[in-house]
C-alpha cells in the first residue's frame, strides 16, 4: 500500500479529530497534540487507529517523555513518522 503525504495527513487529522470529538476541519495541519487536550487514553487510541489504517506498528511507549522512537507531539511530526514507517514496510 502506498499513501501520499496528503492522504496520510488527512488520516492523521481525522483520527485525532475523532478522539477529540471535533470535526476534521477544526484540527489545524500544524496542531500540537498536547495543546489540543488529547488525554493519555485518547493518544493510545489514536495510535491504534493509525496502526490499523496503515498496517504499521508504531513504536510508542507512554513512559518515554522525549519519545525517541516516534514523535507524537504534532500533526506534522506524526505524519512524518507514519510516512517513515510506511516506507520501511514497503522497502
Amino acid at each position: 500500500m502506498s499513501a501520499s503525504r496528503a492522504e496520510i495527513e488527512a488520516a492523521v487529522v481525522a483520527i485525532l479529530a475523532k478522539q477529540l470529538l471535533l470535526s476534521p476541519g477544526e484540527v489545524a495541519a500544524d496542531a500540537r497534540v498536547d495543546e489540543m487536550g488529547l488525554d493519555s487514553l485518547g493518544k493510545v487510541e489514536a495510535i491504534f487507529g493509525l496502526e490499523e489504517r496503515f498496517g504499521i506498528a508504531i513504536p510508542f511507549n507512554a513512559n518515554e517523555p522525549d519519545q525517541p522512537d516516534f514523535d507524537f507531539s504534532s500533526v506534522p511530526s506524526i505524519v512524518a513518522g507514519v510516512e517513515r514507517l510506511i516506507a520501511q514496510k514497503t522497502a
Binding site: 493510545v44 511507549n61 507512554a62
Partner: peptide
C-alpha cells in the same frame, strides 16, 4: 501492550 505502558 495496547496501553503502551509496559517496559520492553
Amino acid at each position: 501492550e495496547g496501553l503502551r505502558v509496559l517496559a520492553p
